[in-house]
């Protein structure tokens, strides 16, 4: 089991991570961060994070950290 932590204040809502997550565990959040962007958030479904780090790799803001 792994855990994904998204720093929503650094996220700029480019949504690249959403498309690369094989478990579809990331979604657009509905609130706005202090830079005025709509960040993403991790969601909890039957699937759980495998720690593949694809989201963190593609993230241009380096605002996703993965623990396992």
């Amino acid at each position: 089991m792994a855990k994904m932590r998204i720093n929503q204040q650094k996220c700029k809502g480019c949504l690249l991570c959403i498309n690369v997550c094989p478990q579809k565990l990331i979604e657009k959040d509905d609130k706005i961060n202090n830079k005025g962007y709509t960040p993403v958030k991790s969601i909890y479904t039957k699937q759980n994070c495998s720690g593949c780090c694809l989201c963190a790799i593609i993230c241009p803001e380096c605002c996703i950290e993965i623990e396992r």
Binding site: A2, C62, I64, I66, E67, R68
Partner: peptide
């Protein structure tokens, strides 16, 4: 749990 992907030290 151990961090396996995080911000590198050389990046502010």
């Amino acid at each position: 749990m151990k961090k396996i992907y995080s911000r590198p030290q050389s990046l502010y």
